[in-house]
């Protein structure tokens, strides 16, 4: 596979777009006409060729621009990267996992040469070449976690496992769906998972925690989550809420198709070897309603899901202001026909 990396922006003039191929591989999250919140995990095994799950970490046409956007967000607010001091083993675990995965999965883009502890890393798309000593922070320009978080699409949280729970003790968070790393870092599982409407009584979070705490080396898992964003903005942080909150007022029946985006998170979890911690990776995919509706099956499906979504969930996800307009816009694709079960586009 050779990738042409697009030059585009996720802020200001918002030139972000999906190619036809990118639309086709979009991780559409709704197999049925109704949506129920769940934390069901599946093994993160290699998906079909071309799918976003084909490789351990997905590198796509937005890679270079997204890495630039990350750097910009971090430059404007260094608090998007935070790590507690006891997480150094987990940081090296992360560097090792990402460098080994990328160089194995995309050998034409990334290479890793090892001579004992002396490693040389090359990232061709970002024009980086670096020799360093694995385990010796002084030989890198920055923390190992920050170093590789800047070079992989998505957000990353390192979890420490102790006291029968998981603590979010490090993070590199620049494309979050409205949560603050600087505020939440160091929190235990139940503290940073605020209650989700309609699910708090089911013990869903307790079961998910127990499942994750018994995750094993070599057996990563994944799930999809979703929300919606106005404009293709990666940085929908509470820090910058004053910058993007008002965008929800700018949606009109004329611009729904271009402005309203479905935001899907491919969440993957890995047990880390040295630290016994977990890596929680959150990869964000954005698609606007026009792009989505190039596959009418998806437009029909999403029309039904969004129309019938429980109002508490719509409120929780911040979708109320533009829900009616978007449902109205999508309705023209929906003839009411039964489209069966499954997330496939056609």
């Amino acid at each position: 596979m050779s990738l042409a990396f697009k030059k585009e922006t996720f802020r200001d003039d918002y030139t972000y777009k999906n190619s036809v191929e990118a639309i086709k591989r979009f991780p559409f999250p709704f197999p049925e006409d109704t949506y129920m919140y769940s934390v069901n995990m599946e093994p993160h095994t290699k998906g079909p060729k071309g799918a976003v799950t084909e490789h351990t970490f997905d590198i796509d046409e937005h890679y270079v621009s997204e890495c630039l956007d990350k750097a910009k967000t971090l430059e404007l607010d260094p608090g998007r990267y935070a790590v507690l001091p006891h997480m150094m083993d987990a940081q090296w675990d992360f560097l090792e996992l990402t460098m080994e995965s990328l160089s194995t999965d995309y050998p034409h883009l990334f290479t890793l040469k090892k001579d004992g502890k002396n490693w040389t890393w090359e990232n061709k798309p970002l024009s980086i070449k670096k020799s360093f000593v694995f385990g010796d922070v002084s030989t890198l320009d920055m923390d190992p976690f920050e170093y590789m978080s800047r070079q992989v699409q998505g957000d990353f949280v390192l979890l420490d496992q102790r006291n029968d729970t998981l603590y979010a003790d490090a993070g590199f968070i620049t494309s979050q769906a409205d949560w603050s790393l600087n505020f939440d870092v160091g929190m235990a599982w139940h503290e940073w998972h605020g209650p989700v409407p309609q699910v708090t009584k089911l013990g869903v979070m307790d079961r998910a925690l127990k499942y994750l705490m018994s995750m094993q080396l070599g057996a990563p898992v994944r799930r999809l989550n979703w929300t919606m964003t106005i404009n293709p903005r990666l940085d929908t942080s509470p820090e910058n809420y004053p910058l993007w909150g008002g965008d929800r007022n700018t949606v009109t029946p004329e611009n729904v198709g271009k402005k309203v985006h479905l935001r899907v998170e491919l969440q993957t979890l890995f047990r880390l070897p040295r630290s016994n911690g977990l890596l929680f990776s959150i990869r964000c995919y954005l698609i606007n309603m026009e792009e989505l509706s190039t596959f009418p099956r998806w437009a029909k499906r999403f029309h039904r899901v969004f129309r019938d979504l429980h109002s508490d969930l719509a409120e929780y996800k911040g979708l109320v202001k533009f829900r009616e307009m978007t449902v109205q816009w999508l309705s023209k694709f929906d003839d009411g026909a039964d489209i069966g079960v499954g997330t496939h586009p056609e």
Binding site: S180, F183, D184, V185, G186, M187, E191, G194, P238, Y241, P242, G245, G246, R248, N249, K321
Partner: peptide, 27 residues
């Protein structure tokens, strides 16, 4: 100087509740 809505979400590390600009969407 922003007007912050005081949430119940609490950080033990900071010893503080989260404050979020109350009129960001509607100045």
């Amino acid at each position: 100087g922003k007007k912050l809505f005081v949430r119940d979400h609490f950080s033990r590390r900071l010893g503080a509740y989260m404050g979020l600009m109350v009129d960001a969407e509607d100045p």
